[in-house]
Design a protein around this nucleic acid. Structure first.
Length: 478
RNA sequence: CGAGAUGUAGCGCAGUUUGGUAGCGCGCUUCGUUCGGGACGAAGAGGCCGCAGGUUCGAUUCCUGUCAUCUCGACCA
């Protein structure tokens, strides 16, 4: 029996985190590989998670006045090259199109690696007066970046995302927008994905190509590596100038507007896996779980069991996403299956329960198993789902706190990571790029962000010892 | 993109050293017995051994190339 179980089990998380991750994406049926490197099929169960993410976020965007649009997938080289920093930032990973198998020499087309240039071209066409501003646009599409190394969800060559592109009359308004969207991302991650994030600003060397400043949310995965979960950029009027976007203001003067862009990707699914998953498989936050509760009949061949299960499913389906598995697999098989798939709640219903007017409810996050009366079960189940969400957030936060270290020298960073494993390192920085590089060279951690919250832990730079300007989060990143 | 490893049935693997057209476990199909933590028995089905060249009478096995996957670096959401 023990032998058999071993055959089916996934790699232990603490033994080999990377293998554990790929085991989960395959065994929970989130993705399947294709014959093209870095391009994956997102299977129904994986895509349903993305649809839930999409639905919630889209609601948040709409509630703050944004509208969805859809830009073309192709960008002519001449357009891509209009903003110098931007094109330089993306050039190495742009995929070019050949027409009918022939190389195109003049103004060839690429597949969008991001759509700033397309939005800019469009804005230049439709914006004339201050009355045309702001435009708060977003699109849900896929983009292509020809990455060298790829990993499902974390780094694929084509990935799904949303990209918001807004344009404003004033700098202050654009900055407010950048901050607002970062807040929305952070709220979304913490409330709906139960994933704590650090809000902050990227250093100069790490910011988006063409941006004045890049804000980000950084999350810490269970193995102590950092993952950028979302970004929000303030562009100033640099793009507007490069693309000749102007409007006439109230004083009848021609001026450039200010822009932002912000995005999250299917990488969030990778973040969910690596934040919450355990040795039994995926653990999904209730808000985005395709199935929030699964009903498993016990001794389903016995009279009345399936009928009782169906009645329960019917009742719960009015409130939550519920599935009844009446397949003829054994109950034990189903338990393991839905644990692998990360279903937040399992409801067992068998002859004994029916007799007692109850069911057994089991929480995926901690394995807690309790009997609850069938009367009023809808409320109890909703209660348990929100409890599961809180527990997941608390667990993830505990892991992050445990793996957040404060260091005062590069030697201390090296020693600390050796003793405790990877994690966030909080250390002061003078603001000099040379020090940023030197820390990476010496210790292996790179700068993640300058956090909005958090007090100075020292007065001197962790690297050069000169006066420190910023507290910085450092870490090894995905 | 540099270093390394791996591609054999849906999944996990053996076989390759020493060349002769493929095997195991799980899963799958059918029937029966089961069903409160991945049940059991019987009978079946399933393979251009990643792909393309080469060597050979003959290649899953040897050689070359290529594609994909994984790991570690450099780069990046």
């Amino acid at each position: 029996m023990a032998e058999k179980k071993k055959v089916e089990a996934i790699t232990s998380r603490d033994e080999d985190f990377a293998k554990w991750y790929t085991d989960i994406v395959k065994k929970a049926e989130l993705i399947e590989y294709t014959s093209v490197k870095g391009c994956m099929v997102i299977r129904p169960y994986g895509y349903a998670i993305w649809e839930n993410i999409q639905r919630i976020l889209d609601g948040m965007f709409k509630a703050t006045g944004h509208e969805n649009v859809c830009m073309p997938m192709f960008i002519p080289e001449s357009l891509l090259q209009k903003e110098k920093d931007h094109v330089e930032g993306f050039a190495p990973e742009v995929a070019w199109v050949t027409m009918g198998g022939k190389e195109v020499l003049e103004d060839r087309l690429c597949v969008r690696p991001t759509s700033e240039t397309l939005f800019c071209e469009h804005y230049a066409n439709i914006i004339h007066s201050y009355r045309d501003l702001p435009k708060l646009y977003n699109q849900w599409v896929s983009v292509v970046r020809w990455e060298k190394t790829t990993r499902p969800f974390l780094r694929s060559r084509e990935f799904l995302w949303q990209e918001g592109h807004t344009i404003h009359a004033t700098e202050a308004e654009a900055i407010r927008e950048t901050e607002q969207m970062l807040d929305i991302y952070a709220d979304f991650c913490e409330k709906y994905l139960a994933m704590p994030v650090v809000k902050g600003k990227k250093t100069e060397s790490d910011k988006f190509a063409g941006a004045v400043s890049t804000y980000c949310i950084e999350a810490l995965m269970h193995d102590g590596k950092a993952l950028q979960a979302g970004t929000s950029h303030f562009f100033g009027d640099g793009f507007a100038k490069a693309f000749d976007i102007t409007y006439t203001d109230r004083e009848n003067k021609k001026v450039n507007p200010f822009q932002t862009s912000w995005g999250v990707t299917t990488r969030l699914i990778g973040a969910i896996i690596m934040t919450h998953g355990d040795d039994n498989g995926l653990v999904l936050p209730p808000a985005v779980a395709p199935v929030q509760a699964v009903i498993i009949p016990v001794a389903q061949h016995k009279e009345g069991v399936l009928e009782a299960c169906e009645a329960l499913r019917e009742k719960l389906s009015k409130r939550i996403r519920v599935k009844l598995d009446d397949s003829d697999n054994s109950a034990g098989w189903k338990f393991a299956e839905y644990e692998m798939k990360g279903v937040p709640l399992r409801i067992e219903l068998g002859p004994r329960d029916i007799e007692n007017g109850q069911c057994v409810v089991c929480l995926r996050v901690n394995g807690e198993k309790i009997s609850l009366p069938l009367k009023g079960i809808e409320d109890a189940v909703e209660q348990k789902l929100s409890e599961a969400n809180e527990l997941m957030f608390a667990k993830a936060l505990e892991n992050r706190e445990k793996k957040t270290y404060t260091c005062h020298s590069t030697d201390e960073i090296i020693k600390c990571l050796e003793e405790n494993g990877d994690g966030f390192v909080k250390a002061m920085w003078c603001g000099d790029e040379a020090c940023e590089d030197a820390v990476k060279e010496k210790t292996g951690v790179c700068s993640r962000c300058i956090p909005f919250e958090g007090e100075a832990v020292d007065t001197k730079c962790v690297c050069c010892g000169k006066e420190a300007k910023h507290l910085l989060y450092w870490g090894k990143a995905y």
